[in-house]
């Protein structure tokens, strides 16, 4: 492993720390629920990236990175998507309830 590779990984590690901070800030400061969801995803991706950087530093045995964190991050990305889909659908439900859909009557007729 050359020195330049290490420092690029470290740089992206610092980037991940910044992502965590920005995501946390959006989560606290923005009152809009969709923005909180996006912020939470930014926070999460920062954590994933941090894990990835640690995996990259673990390059050994002829590999360019430790495969175990990579596999766990792939699982994490899919689980994060599932949670985001559930939360986003919940937002639609809340929005529909709060705004008493103009076409709610039409749906009632169909049923």
């Amino acid at each position: 492993m050359t020195h330049s590779l290490v420092s690029a990984a470290t740089l992206l590690g610092l980037c991940a720390c910044g992502m965590v901070g920005i995501g946390l800030y959006g989560l606290i400061v923005r009152p809009d629920a969709l923005r909180k969801l996006l912020s939470f995803n930014i926070l999460g991706s920062g954590v994933f990236l941090l894990f990835g950087v640690i995996g990259r530093r673990g390059a050994a045995a002829g590999l360019e990175g430790d495969p175990v964190p990579q596999a766990i991050v792939i699982t994490g990305i899919v689980v994060a998507f599932s949670a985001t889909a559930l939360a986003a659908t919940l937002l639609v439900k809340i929005s529909d309830a709060e705004n008493a859909l103009p076409d709610a009557g039409r749906e009632e007729d169909e049923a």
């Binding site: 009152p31 809009d32 969709l34 909180k36 985001t84 889909a85 986003a88 639609v92 809340i94 529909d96």
Partner: peptide, 15 residues
Amino acid sequence: LLLRVAARLGDLRPM
């Protein structure tokens, strides 16, 4: 997913 949801969302009461 988010584009579909953002297009559907009306005014949400702020959290």
